[in-house]
Each structure stands twice: as structure tokens, then as C-alpha cells.
Amino acid sequence: MSRYLTVAMGQLGPIQRADSRASVVARLCAMMREAKALGAQLIVYPELALTTFFPRWYIEDPQELHAFYETTMPNADTQPLFDLARELGIGFYLGYAELAQEADGLHQYNTSILVNQQAEIIAKYRKVHVPGHSEHEPWRRFQHLEKRYFESGPGFGVTEAFGGVMGMALCNDRRWAETYRVLALQRCEMVFIGYNTPVHNAPAPQHDDLSLFHNQLSLQAGAYQNGMWVVGVAKGGLEEGVDSIGGSCIVAPSGEVISRCITKDDEVQVARCDLDWCAIYKRTTFDFDLHRRPHAYGLITAKKGETLAADGTLWQAAVGH
């Protein structure tokens, strides 16, 4: 019997700087209700879904900057989303900026979490491929200071949930072949990827007309070459004067787009995904054990309970954490 998972994309339109978290969470809740009405078991929201995309500004005051981060999850602002998820029996993926107090001090991450149908956080991911730049560059029309505001996470893990093996990534991760391959080496069947991508690429404006194409190309290639479902969900539209691409879509292991958002506003689209469809590719064209030659490029394959770092090396951590 096939393993079906009905997944919703909860694409967001613009979030302006003056918008409160409470107003954003109300929008997320409205989309969650719509997703449930459409039969979804899980809804996927974008990267940095609770605030405007603040790395577009050079912010020197730590207090002003840290106002964009979450120190706990859930918290007073996001609790209504968790409460609704529990009431409806629906899971969700959510991206946000995380301010983490750790043993060696305060750390800033671009983070996503996976929440089950009982409203429990079952996995956390911290973005590995952090793009942009670290210092103020006045020549740009807007900044992209992710390297200033976030540090890289430790690697990619998978979680057994929703009847399959799930992975997470964020935005720029989707452009790198290693993201999908490291997850696939851990038997990932579906990866959730929230993103915020401006139409304009300041260092390479020649790419501007290709922004949407490159987004979909990355998602489709990652899905096909690794025999997995890919769910890419955007925050789009004109946010604080910066136009972002949208283009949220769900890609099958065949590389085919089976569901797509057609606006740059708040929009819910769903797809019924057969997780067993992954095996058609994982056991034939992309049977890693049979056809792949890791010794030729110095990589290894994770065993049960092991997690691979972005460069394909093992790091000791529980899968999914």
C-alpha cells in the first residue's frame, strides 16, 4: 500500500517592518485552517516567516537587531499557531530567526522547526549555506547581510515523521547539490525548504531575469537526482520596496512540478504525495549502493543513527536534531 502525505504550501506575501508578529501569526493561522480544509496533514511556511526580511538593512544597535529574533519557541506570539495545530491535528514547518543562549555565549541562527500533529517540535535545523555579505556595502540598493546576522548550522539531519523520512533546509541551501545529496544519503524522502529570494541580485544583475528559473531548476534537479520530494515555499511580493520572486512549488522525485503557487501573496496550494514513489528512483537510476562510487570523491554514507555534515563527513549528533 502506498504511503500518501498531503502537504500544503503556506506561501506568504510581503511582511512590512511595522507588521506585528501577532498579525503575521494570524495570517499563518488562516492559512493553516485553509490547508486543513483542503485535507493537508502538514503545512510548510517560508524562511524567516515571522518578520520582514531584516538582513536587507545594516543594523548596528544589538537591541534593535535582536528584536527580529526568537529566544524561545513557542513563545507568547507563536503559541496561537501551536494551539491551532493541536486543535486541527496538523503539522507544520516554520522558519524564523533564532537567538540561542549556549554554553559559550549568544548565537544567531537562521532556523526552521518541524512540528508534528500534536504540536510538538520534533526537529530543528539551522541554515548551513549562509549567503550574502558581512559588512555594509553602500553601493547596493539594499543589503543582504545574512553573513553578519547568522552563523552556519552544523549540518543536515533527517527525522522519521508523517509516515516517512523528512529533511529540512533553508533558502540558499537549495542551490547546492550537497544539500540534497547529504539528506538523500540519510534516506530522506521529502525535504522542506522555506526561502526569501529577491528578484534583483546586486552583484550579478544579469541573473535578475533568471531568478525564478534558477529557483525552480534547483528544486527540480535536487528532487530528481536524489529520488525525493521537494517542497519549496517562498515569501514573495514587494516587501519594504524589495520585490521577491515567490514561485512556491512541490516537486516529485521524477523532477516534475505537481503543485505551484500562482501569486506573490498569501496563498495555499496542496499536493497528495506518494512517499513510495521515491523508491522508483532510489532503487533504479539513483540506487546509491549499486551505482554511486563515493571512494572516487572522498565521501561516505551515513549508517542508521548517524548524521552527515554539509561536506559529507560524519558528525556525532542524533538524527533530526
Rank of each mutant, 00 (worst) to 15 (best):
G10C: 03
L12P: 01
I15C: 06
I15V: 12
R21V: 13
A22N: 12
V24E: 07
V25R: 06
A30Y: 01
M31R: 09
A37M: 12
G39I: 00
A40N: 03
Q41L: 02
V44H: 12
V44C: 10
A49R: 05
L50W: 02
L50N: 07
P55A: 09
P55D: 03
R56D: 12
I59P: 02
E60V: 11
P62D: 06
Y69M: 04
P74A: 02
P74Y: 02
A76G: 07
T78S: 08
Q79E: 11
L81Q: 03
L81N: 03
F82D: 03
E87F: 02
G95M: 06
Y96T: 04
L106N: 02
L114Y: 00
Q117N: 09
A119H: 03
I122A: 01
A123I: 01
K124Y: 01
R126H: 11
H133D: 04
E135I: 13
E135V: 14
E137R: 14
P138M: 08
W139H: 15
W139M: 15
R140T: 13
R140E: 13
Q143K: 08
K147D: 04
F150P: 07
G157N: 09
V158D: 03
G164I: 01
G167F: 02
L170Y: 00
L170K: 08
A177D: 13
A177Y: 12
L183C: 07
H200W: 15
A202W: 14
P203G: 11
P205C: 01
H207M: 10
S211M: 14
H214K: 14
L217D: 14
L219W: 10
Q220F: 07
Q225W: 13
G227V: 08
M228L: 06
V230M: 00
V233P: 01
E240C: 09
G241C: 11
S248R: 09
S248Q: 11
V251G: 00
P253N: 07
P253F: 05
G255I: 11
G255N: 12
E256W: 12
I258G: 03
R260A: 07
R260E: 13
T263S: 15
E267Q: 10
V270C: 13
A271I: 08
A271N: 07
L275Q: 03
L275V: 06
K282M: 08
R283T: 14
A296I: 10
I300N: 03
A302S: 10
A302W: 05
A302I: 04
G312K: 04
T313C: 08
W315E: 11
Q316Y: 05
